[in-house]
């Protein structure tokens, strides 16, 4: 009897991508269901721009799909996907840093006015103020829930560097938000 898809491990699903189209499609859908939110969260918050995030989000999964091979050792599919996304985003930022689009600005403005969660909006804005090296690590930790070790492997830095950067990123964020956070504590 065949197992239902959610009983397959990430690794099994990855190798199923090399099977016939129907199997591959189902496996891909399952992988997508499991990990797309993390990949998108990274692209969206790292790039800041919605259209760019969508493009690189798609490209991540296309590259991932193309990389499927029975010969490839796969131990941590989640990290593998986020690594692809991260490489694409970092390369994209290195190549080109286009100005924010009017649509994105408008969408962001709408968010600002319409969203009740003021702190979230401030967090998003302050995230964009962080240097890339801090922003990236902050997103990997807070949005993608990766462990320090996984982040260290991904960005190819020592564990201590990761610890320090995460701490500094969070401190930096707190500094930026300090006036607001302090104000909040007055009313609590």
């Amino acid at each position: 009897m065949l197992k239902s898809l959610d009983e397959y491990s990430d690794t099994e699903l990855f190798y199923m991508l090399c099977d016939d189209k129907k199997t591959a499609e189902k496996a891909f859908s399952e992988i997508f269901a499991r990990h797309s939110s993390k990949v998108y969260a990274f692209c969206r918050r790292f790039l800041g721009n919605k259209e760019e995030a969508q493009d690189l989000f798609q490209e991540t999964f296309i590259k991932f799909h193309q990389s499927a091979s029975k010969d490839r050792a796969m131990t941590n599919l989640s990290a593998f996907l986020v690594t692809i996304a991260r490489n694409l985003c970092v390369n994209y930022k290195r190549k080109d840093k286009p100005a924010i689009s009017f649509e994105d600005y408008m969408a962001h403005s709408d968010d600002m006015t319409g969203d009740k969660n003021e702190l979230l909006e401030l967090v998003k804005s302050s995230l964009e103020l962080l240097p890339d090296e801090y922003r990236e690590i902050f997103i990997l930790r807070e949005y993608d829930g990766m462990s320090y070790n996984e982040i260290a492997k991904m960005i190819n830095q020592p564990l201590n560097t990761v610890k320090v950067r995460i701490h500094r990123a969070k401190q930096k964020m707190r500094e930026i938000l300090q006036p607001y956070l302090a104000e909040m504590s007055k009313y609590e």
Binding site: S36, Q54, H65, N117, K170
Partner: peptide, 28 residues
Amino acid sequence: LIRDAIGKDTEAFTPPAAAVTGLFDKLG
């Protein structure tokens, strides 16, 4: 508080339907 706010960042965790459709279309 910051972590809690991030937890409510629904938009970041929700790939837009257009992106999902486009991706699956591209893959056939």
